[in-house]
């Protein structure tokens, strides 16, 4: 029953629309499709999108896990406010996040003005894209790790300590393994979200071809040229690569769940 219901909704909301997309891209034919993806500018934009998303997702996996740990295990003044702030990137329209970030990290901005004399430019460079993607993807890791961490029994840690493990060993060999599926999920989601992100990035990226032009912007440009097929072709490639990445990560995750899972 639950599977049927889930499949129905999945079909209606996700599969049918994406099939329409694939159909439109297929109208190009293999030759036209190859022409789109072999364009060095498209390739450069895809590279920018995937690499910045990867860098941001790695940063988020590390700091997101740390933040989840701090929020679940430690009690400190302002913890609840801290907790509340995590979700802000979801609530802020991406355009607002972009405007806010660029006003802080531009060479004349609140933080940017201190970095500029050091030769560090954030806004209008790929670094700016990473900053935006970190901000946008941050809640994913925290919010997937947090509930699992809350569920983990302290007893195993006590046992581990009783058996003579030091705190670091306990954390690394006892606490971390069951968290890995959740961390991976968060990582994958942050990565996937980062690859497609548009609204916040265009404000801070600089959008220079071959340097800081992201793939979604190229899609928008193709649309401006009324080139639906070209736009959907880029979208289809992004989709295929993301799907593959997610599939691999989900595969690792289900493997690690079988290995470390409590089931």
């Amino acid at each position: 029953m639950s599977l049927g219901l889930a499949l129905t909704m999945l079909t209606l909301i996700v599969l049918i629309p994406l099939a329409a997309l694939a159909l439109r891209a297929a109208a190009l034919g293999p030759a036209g499709f190859y022409e789109v993806i072999s364009d060095p500018r498209v390739f450069a934009a895809l590279k920018v999108s995937f690499l910045t998303a990867l860098a941001a997702a790695i940063a988020n996996a590390i700091f997101g896990t740390l933040t989840a740990w701090v929020l679940v295990r430690y009690n400190f003044f302002g913890r609840r406010i801290f907790d509340a702030l995590i979700d802000l990137p979801f609530a802020m329209p991406t355009a607002v996040a972009g405007i806010a970030l660029v006003s802080v990290y531009s060479p004349k901005g609140l933080i940017g003005q201190w970095l500029a004399p050091l030769g560090i430019k954030i806004a209008y460079t790929p670094l700016g894209i990473i900053v935006a993607l970190i901000a946008v993807g941050f809640p994913f890791v925290v919010r997937t790790v947090q509930p699992v961490l809350e569920e983990i029994s302290r007893e195993t840690e006590e046992i581990s300590a009783t058996l003579g493990a030091n705190r670091f060993q306990t954390l690394f060999f006892v606490v971390l393994p069951p968290l890995i599926p959740a961390i991976l999920t968060g990582f994958a989601l942050a990565l996937a979200r980062g690859v497609g992100e548009y609204g916040s990035v265009i404000f801070i990226a600089g959008n220079l071809p071959f340097k800081s032009e992201i793939a979604p912007l190229l899609i928008v440009i193709k649309l401006e040229e009324f080139n639906y097929a070209g736009a959907t072709a880029i979208a289809a490639i992004m989709l295929a690569v993301s799907f593959l990445m997610l599939f691999v990560i989900n595969g690792i995750q289900s493997w690690s769940q079988k290995r470390f899972g409590h089931g």
């Binding site: 029953m1 599977l3 049927g4 219901l5 209606l12």
Partner: peptide
């Protein structure tokens, strides 16, 4: 499965 498909459509 059919029944839940109908249920899904209904909600939708």
């Amino acid at each position: 499965v059919l029944k839940s498909f109908q249920a899904g459509l209904l909600v939708f």
